[in-house]
Simulated assay, not measured.
Amino acid sequence: MRKAAVNRLKAGMVVSRTLFGREGQVLLKAGTKIKEKYIKSLKRLGITGIYVQDERLEGIETAEVVQDSTRQEARLLVKELINEMGRNKKGKFHCQQEKKITRVVNQIVEELLANKDIVVNMDDIRTIDSYTFSHSVNVCILATLAAVKRDFNAEALQEIAVGSLLHDLGKVKIPDIILKKKGPLTEAEYAVIKSHPVYGRALLSESALCAETVLNVVYQHHERLGGQGYPQGLSGAEISVPAQITAVADVYDALVSERYYRKAYLPHQVIEMFTSWAETYFDVEVLRTFFSFLTAYPVGTHVKLSNGKSGLVIKNKPGFPLHPVVRVLY
């Protein structure tokens, strides 16, 4: 199985992992033979790649970080919540929303605990949807897995999962014209954006989800180790560890995602960026935790080696995101 760019798909290839749409509907089932009309539809939907079978990688499988059904449920919940909070001028949670959030994050925690030794490729957790909804779920999965790696207890895992899933909730108070602006923000617009952690904490503080860890994650996820962040300009140990973890997950997913104003960076480029930011913006130990499970070159990636030979990535080694195991082809 390997990830193939849609513009390089050919009729007759076989889908190896079920592809889901924006509303959780199945677009292409695993085992489906690709036809030209499917390729055209994928391009029209803006899908850039899918997993296909490859006999050169026979017997090599990649484990799911969380089940597709769990990921889809979480994404739809975030979408529903953000839409409701945007319409609700009082901005209050109701009991059913709190119960749904608790159930979904408990499922995510349970599945990550069962897969704590997994190596993560962002393509494995990304869904086809607007950035806001998929980003919230991606950050939740990444931050919670980092907390699992650091042996957080059950209560702390649930709280970081809730906080990271809802870390951008305050953006419901930010006008779309600013959130979706394609060009550079003005100083005044950036000041408005920087208010979303304050709004997020206020929205959550009156709910049953207002544990201190949750509020810290929502309020502090844009703080930076050297005091360069917002809204308070906290530094070092003033920033809670769950918030520091969520900050890394937030920035990582943002950089590997395509945005209104730029193309997505490649995973290996982002890992190199984080390496250069260690001790300035992000804690070294927190980064080491992420590097223990992130991968720059997913299984099935075609790579050119330093000796000029070509190969396919067949395995990733925990803790060595830039050094995969490669099967040489020619």
Rank of each mutant, 00 (worst) to 15 (best):
R22F: 06
Q72E: 14
V217C: 05
K116E: 10
E285A: 03
I108G: 02
V120L: 11
F320Y: 15
V52H: 09
V198C: 04
Y190I: 10
V26M: 06
L77W: 05
E212S: 10
N88F: 11
K37I: 03
A208T: 00
V214Q: 00
K149A: 10
E110R: 13
A247C: 14
N115T: 13
K3M: 15
P184A: 13
K35M: 10
I177A: 14
K3E: 11
I39K: 15
N115G: 05
I82M: 12
I128M: 06
Q269G: 11
M273Q: 12
A154D: 12
R224P: 01
K182H: 14
V256A: 06
L225C: 07
V78F: 14
E64R: 09
C140I: 00
G91H: 06
Q107V: 12
I314N: 08
Q97H: 13
V248E: 07
G163W: 08
K99A: 07
S164F: 03
T132S: 15
V270Q: 05
A156L: 11
K40W: 01
L203T: 03
T186W: 10
A154Q: 10
K304V: 02
L329E: 13
N121W: 07
A249L: 07
S164W: 13
Q244Y: 00
H221C: 04
G31L: 10
Q232F: 06
F291Y: 08
V137G: 02
A63K: 08
P298I: 02
T186F: 14
L234S: 06
K37W: 12
K149W: 04
T144L: 01
V14M: 04
I160Y: 08
D283L: 00
V218F: 13
Q232L: 14
Q67F: 08
R259N: 14
T48V: 02
K173R: 14
K173G: 07
N153P: 08
L76H: 09
V256W: 09
Q97R: 09
L225F: 13
R2M: 11
V120M: 03
E155S: 14
V248T: 07
M85T: 01
K89G: 06
I101Y: 05
I39E: 14
A74T: 03
A156D: 15
K149M: 03
K3R: 15
A114Q: 07
V251C: 10
K43G: 13
T70R: 00
